[in-house]
């Protein structure tokens, strides 16, 4: 492997990694407020991409497709919270997680009925002319995805650490009963977290469709990789989720380079297991989010 190839593997890893990172962020937000792993997160990303494609097909400009998709998925995500998660509040976290698994099938089947089986495409935001760096190339859309990831993470950090409502969300994650005693509306925090996670997922879906297309069945693999990334980085920590995404993407790409593409998932998951053995909370996981 020469340097040029090495750099290309890194770029390939960053492209996939930023996609995993954006999906992982959605997991983190919901987990932070509720301790629920939302297994329909990948399908939310898929719905974001598919909705944007539908808007674009109707002649709507790209930026408006982006906004439209975000609004639609936020509504769906809040609907999910209202219909499937809130009624099960007293039944415990496990019941709520299973409800999200059910929701993932509903979203996937609905998408298949609405948009059919075929994968669909969306034009890139600023052209497809690859940018060359020392012999390796990267498409402009990847920079958009990486840029969006950075902006979202910084915004989330400010929100969680500086704003009162952000602190309230974190308080709920630490101890919901104590938070409620302080006058924080737990229900509002949960609903808000689902809305925000829906918005980020939709944005991710719209951003990655020009790179990798989107079909009704894309959500499952995205969800799996996003969940792995979130776990690797430390569930509950947005910075960790993003770091986990990039590490996973780059390890996979180098796995292709060093061994073979057939083993890249195996290599990635072995690394994930190793990290969890050594540091059960993940790379950047903080103990504070672990509810007793």
């Amino acid at each position: 492997m020469n340097f040029e190839q090495f750099l290309q593997y890194i770029f390939s890893g960053i492209t996939n990694g930023s996609i995993y990172a954006l999906t992982a962020l959605g997991f983190t937000l919901v987990f932070n407020a509720t301790q629920i792993i939302n297994f329909s997160q990948g399908q939310m990303v898929m719905l974001g991409g598919m909705t944007a494609i539908a808007f674009h097909g109707a002649g709507v400009p790209l930026w408006a497709c982006f906004l439209g998709a975000v609004i639609v998925v936020v509504v769906i995500s809040m609907g999910l919270e209202h219909v499937a998660v809130r009624p099960l509040l007293s039944k415990g976290v496990l019941a709520q997680i299973i409800a999200t698994v059910g929701a993932s099938f509903v979203f996937e089947t609905a998408a298949m009925i609405i948009w059919g089986r075929q994968a669909l495409a969306l034009p890139a935001f600023s052209g497809e002319r690859p940018i060359g760096v020392a012999g390796a190339t990267v498409v402009p859309q990847t920079l958009w995805v990486v840029g969006l990831t950075v902006v979202i993470v910084v915004a989330l950090q400010i929100f969680y650490r500086r704003s009162l409502f952000g602190k309230a969300v974190r308080a709920c994650a630490v101890n919901p009963s104590a938070a409620r005693l302080q006058g924080i509306s737990y229900r509002k925090v949960v609903l808000f977290s689902f809305a925000l996670s829906g918005a980020i997922s939709a944005a991710a879906g719209v951003m990655i469709t020009p790179i990798s297309f989107m079909s009704y069945s894309s959500g499952a693999l995205l969800g799996l990789k996003g969940f792995a990334a979130a776990t690797l980085g430390g569930l509950g920590n947005p910075v960790g989720a993003v770091a986990g995404g990039f590490v996973l993407g780059i390890v996979e790409a180098l796995g292709v380079g060093v061994v073979s593409a057939g083993y890249k998932d195996a290599i990635a998951f072995v690394i994930l297991l190793l990290v969890l053995f050594i540091r059960p909370v993940g790379l950047l996981g903080a103990r504070v989010v672990t509810r007793q």
Binding site: F11, G13, T15, S212, S217, L221, L222, V256, G257, A261
Partner: peptide, 13 residues
């Protein structure tokens, strides 16, 4: 995999 998001790593190899 059918739904892989980027194939540049395979193609680089």
């Amino acid at each position: 995999k059918t739904n892989d998001t980027d194939l540049t790593a395979q193609l680089t190899k």
